[in-house]
């Protein structure tokens, strides 16, 4: 099963390396959102530093919508989704492979944006370990939920507009938990960031498990 997961993930990442959609479109979009937040808050450095955790995760989630849509549309092109159905690959392997590729792309995006907020917003960092672990756990949650809802909407017309409506409410707990944990790591919120990290890890595991079980049925219905 692991080799099948790596087969799918490798294929998605190879396609992404060739097309450079994430690098040339998703990352610039996310950076633009960060800059716009800065304009909206009048470039007040103390305000920006205070709200950095929330602004950062909203930017990550908005950019993730584009990445999820891209991940789904890879299979739509010339009937590859049906090819996967007819292959010997287990649906859970397909789900996990696509999730791994999406998570890898989102991790890259999150790290670039992290550099962006540290430079643009001048946000301080008190606990680097908590910051990085929160990023990893939250991105896994976003990637797993995104892959699951992407499969749910595969083959649907108007998917571009329906995806945010369905996915954003699901990702609200990630934005809340990751913002609180980041707030603790950046010293802007008096809370226990490690317990929020635990919740994020639970969310990520839940969506990885649900996606692995449900993906087969979703592929059938697409």
């Amino acid at each position: 099963m692991l080799s099948d997961v790596l087969l799918i993930a490798g294929k998605d990442l190879r396609v992404e390396l060739r097309s450079r959609i994430a690098l040339n479109q998703v990352v610039p979009f996310a950076l633009l959102v960060l800059v716009l937040f800065g304009f909206a808050l009048d470039a007040d450095s103390s305000t920006l530093a205070t709200f950095t955790p929330g602004l950062y995760w909203v930017a990550v989630v908005l950019a993730a919508l584009l990445a999820v849509h891209r991940s789904v549309s890879l299979e739509d092109g010339d009937g590859a989704d049906e090819g996967l159905l007819m292959s010997g690959l287990h649906p859970a392997s397909v789900f996990l492979g696509k999730a791994v590729a999406l998570i890898a792309e989102l991790l890259l995006l999150a790290l670039v944006l992290l550099g962006g907020v540290l430079i643009l917003y001048g946000a301080p960092v008190d606990d680097v370990t908590l910051l990085l672990l929160t990023t990893v756990a939250a991105v896994i949650g976003v990637g797993a939920a995104g892959t699951l809802y992407g499969a749910l909407l595969s083959g649907q017309r108007a998917r571009e507009t329906i995806l945010p409506i369905l996915l954003l409410p699901v990702l609200a707990p990630v934005v809340i938990g990751a913002s609180r944990a980041f707030g603790d790591a950046m010293g802007s919120v008096a809370t226990d960031g490690w317990s929020w990290l635990l919740s994020l890890t639970g969310f990520a595991m839940l969506y990885l498990a649900v996606g692995s079980v449900a993906h087969g049925a979703l592929m059938e219905e697409a």
Binding site: K11, R14, V15, R18, S19, D78, G79, A80, E82
Partner: peptide, 13 residues
Amino acid sequence: GLVGHRTMLYDDL
């Protein structure tokens, strides 16, 4: 083995 109107190939590979 089905070979239909769609080739199931990835354009970027």
